[in-house]
Design a protein around this nucleic acid. Structure first.
Length: 109
DNA sequence: GTGTTGACAATCA
DNA sequence: CTGATTGCCAACA
């Protein structure tokens, strides 16, 4: 089955896929959780193979979603019930911000 | 082998 | 809050 991915990439995708709805993890958190690589490596993996996982559940340490489709991420957050730190009416030019205070998932809870 | 780039993070101004 | 700077780690030319 899908052993085409590297060991590290497979692990990252596994963690992202393990994030429950309504929760999110920052790139650095995933790297720390895996005790390997760094936030940049996690971003690289998602940029290459993230199309198979809920990449919108992986965001920056500031609470801002990844580029490419921030609007899609917002739709997902509203659908999943992710704690956002902004009104449902987001005017253009306003970066979406997730309430990491509550949405941060420690891989265990 | 060296230099640059990148879906990052933390600190300082 | 925004912008600039530095550090970290791996992939890529």
């Amino acid at each position: 089955m899908d052993d085409d991915l590297d060991d590290y990439s497979s692990r990252v995708l596994d963690v992202v896929d393990a994030i429950p709805p309504g929760q999110v993890m920052s790139y650095g958190d995933i790297a720390e959780y895996l005790e390997a690589g760094g936030p940049r490596q996690v971003g690289r993996v998602l940029a290459s193979y993230g199309g198979a996982v809920a990449w919108w559940r992986v965001i920056h340490a500031d609470g801002t979603p990844a580029p490419g489709h921030d609007a899609a991420a917002l739709e997902n957050y509203l659908a999943e019930g992710t704690p956002l730190r902004a009104a449902p009416h987001i005017p253009p030019g306003r970066p979406v911000r997730v309430d990491l205070r509550r949405a941060r998932w420690s891989g265990q809870r």
